[in-house]
């Protein structure tokens, strides 16, 4: 099976610090990483390949430096990387992003399972995975925590819902979005690192995709950001110090009414 995993390069939030004076993000020196959820998608793709045979291609839409994310995926065991990058994609919202990735997938053609992380850690929308499925008119299983069964023509996955787990059977091709629980991503092997270094990354531009220009980038995006602001800082609260027997009743007194209100 040809498994295609869609990944995104994001700023490493573990690195992000807040300037305590201005309450804004300090972004200087922040490194880019593969979106944490995509790491699980990459790992699961490699495991499926190990089981079924075939190959795994990682695809990303982003700036030229997103090539690093593809090389990292290859170092883990992905076979090939495709970078979809063009100035024409500037200002893409989730509609245009999922369209662009769907057009790239059409160009790939022989995809079986399309794997995505459940959402990206910078935008947190969770819209691009199902968006790709919609553009390609494919079935989807979102929030997958386990793949129970897979063959050339179908997949059975466990979807994590708020109140339990739903087991879903879908025909292949289909789109899966995965949650953290699904696996433990492996570290790159030495062999993988060498392969990543040597790998030829395929570059596709807008013209390569047979995309309708009007559906790309800013023009193809129905939404528009009109304002960005920092949320008001939470006021430093009241700290209770001292003997537990003294401070605990003080806190209970403060919280009692709120607890009763919340219970009603």
């Amino acid at each position: 099976m040809h498994i295609v995993v869609c990944i995104k390069q994001v700023p490493d939030t573990a690195d992000v610090k807040i300037d305590p004076k201005t309450n804004t993000l300090i972004r200087e020196g922040v490194v880019s990483i593969i979106n944490p959820f995509d790491m699980y998608a990459i790992e699961e793709s490699i495991r499926l390949k190990e089981k079924l045979g075939g190959k795994v291609t990682a695809i990303t839409m982003g700036p030229p430096q997103a090539e690093n994310a593809l090389r990292e995926a290859i170092s883990m065991g992905v076979d090939a990387g495709i970078l979809v990058s063009d100035r024409a994609f500037a200002g893409s919202d989730t509609w245009a992003t999922s369209y662009t990735l769907a057009m790239a997938l059409k160009k790939i053609g022989d995809y079986g399972v399309i794997m995505c992380g459940k959402q990206a850690s910078d935008g947190d929308t969770a819209q691009v995975g199902p968006g790709i499925a919609a553009h390609l008119d494919l079935p989807q299983i979102t929030y997958v925590r386990k793949i129970e069964e897979i063959s050339a023509d179908h997949v059975v996955g466990e979807r994590l819902l708020e109140e339990g787990t739903e087991v879903i059977r879908a025909p292949v091709p289909c789109v899966l979005t995965v949650v953290k629980e699904i696996n433990e991503p492996r570290l790159p092997s030495l062999k993988g690192k060498l392969a990543a270094k040597k790998a030829q990354i395929t570059h596709w531009k807008a013209d390569d995709l047979k995309a309708e220009k009007g559906n790309l980038g800013l023009d193809g995006s129905p939404t528009k950001v009109v304002k960005i602001f920092t949320p008001p800082a939470r006021q430093g609260g009241q700290i209770f110090k001292g003997e537990p027997e003294e401070i605990v009743p003080q806190l209970v007194e403060k919280l009692k009414d709120a607890v009763i209100a919340a219970a009603s």
Binding site: G131, A134, Y143, P222, K224
Partner: peptide, 23 residues
Amino acid sequence: ATTIGRSLVSRVAVNVRAGLTAD
């Protein structure tokens, strides 16, 4: 913006060409 909601409307918005803002 529940599991169901996010899975559902992402598909809908693509098909009706609507703008969709998450969460």
